[in-house]
Design a binder for these strands. Structure first.
Lengths: 212, 212
DNA sequence: GTCTATAGCCGGATAGAC
DNA sequence: GTCTATCCGGCTATAGAC
């Protein structure tokens, strides 16, 4: 079963791979249909426009990803009462699903990371899919504010923002520094990267407040 | 004098503003020449191709910016011997020129920040200008390694990378969190943002090493 | 549901007059 | 150095046969 993918799935799969490697703006519908081995009319028949292809491609991946984030957070919140979650654990719950876990293969992970990196590098192309992150954003903010009660709302928002910056750069592949890293250390070890990122971000969240 | 800008300068100014607000990929040569009030042939006569327009626009801004970074670093390195630079000071020397200082007006700063933000969001469009950052990268890495000698080369590289992520997100304007920040606090105070970013990053750099 | 053909637009780049 | 006119290719989208 499922030995033959239907047209819609073929389009989504091809689009996903192309968005992941080339970006959204740089990927034309014509490249997608060539890779999917369907014709140009099919993509309009099934999706209506490029924008809706983008939405469908991202929604298919974001939904289960955020599901995992929320499950991990929930697990931290509901475990034995004497063990309140730590900052590091919450940050890990946020980053692990995207940076390392829940991938069946190296190839799968790199495809997902490539795809998600364009959420940050092509904001105008994906503005309409950011709503899918609303719940995750609010629930993680709430969890963090609970264990960092001395931080003001603005403090928390900025530090959350900085966390997203760290996550975003970790998913990038084209950066000067990223290239340097590959030169020096060969392939990127995502398990290690996850730990490094969590460590760095946790220190930032736990830094004392400043007067501005 | 200089009341009449020459064609080349008019093109550079128009391109800079458009790149800053719309991005590079989204800006066509035709939009540039319309804003600059010159004709389409002029841009090819003076620059040869769009790629070279991009190079010229960025080089004009990056060169003095990195000059400033290096001067600030130099000042830290050469002051009274008993006062070794701190991590926070080095990070500040790296971030301050782009995030807050050296701008004659709010408008000037936002234009520069918009322009530079696309160094991170459109990596393929600016790959050929990243060489301009080579010196800054190496000298700041060296300064940091001197006061953080316990960090391995890989540690330092990753944390430097994370710093760039924080800087990058600080310059973004389209983000979910950035929008949230504007809702909650009105306009962005870059003086404050600079301090927050330096504080967050410094904590990350100074975090103890981990075994991976 | 699937295809071919094509409309209609906009992009970068160039030729050649002035 | 500056301009108009134009080439040529790629793009999204649609019409209409099967």
């Amino acid at each position: 079963m499922a030995s033959k993918k239907d047209t819609k799935t073929k389009i989504l799969d091809a689009a996903e791979e192309l968005f992941s490697t080339q970006g959204i703006g740089a990927t034309s519908l014509r490249t997608i249909i060539a890779k999917a081995d369907v014709n140009i009319a099919a993509i309009h028949y099934h999706f209506g426009s490029k924008k809706e292809v983008v939405t469908a491609v991202y929604a298919r991946r974001i939904t289960p990803l955020n599901q995992q984030r929320l499950e991990r957070l929930e697990a931290l919140n509901t475990r034995a009462a004497e063990k309140a979650p730590t900052v590091a654990e919450i940050v890990d719950a946020f980053l692990a699903p995207i940076l390392n876990c829940s991938f069946s293969s190296k190839k799968e992970r790199e495809r997902a990371i490539g795809l998600f990196s364009h959420l940050h590098t092509e904001p105008q192309e994906v503005a309409h899919v950011l709503d899918l992150f609303k719940d995750v954003f609010e629930l993680f903010m709430m969890a963090l504010s609970k264990i960092l009660p001395h931080l003001s709302k603005a403090d928390l928002l900025w530090r959350f923002m900085f966390m997203i910056g760290v996550m975003s750069i970790s998913m990038s592949n084209d950066h000067l520094v990223h290239r340097k890293l590959r030169e020096n250390g060969g392939e990127i070890n995502y398990q290690e990267l996850l730990q490094r990122a969590v460590h760095f971000i946790t220190a930032g969240f736990e830094a004392p407040t400043l007067d501005y």
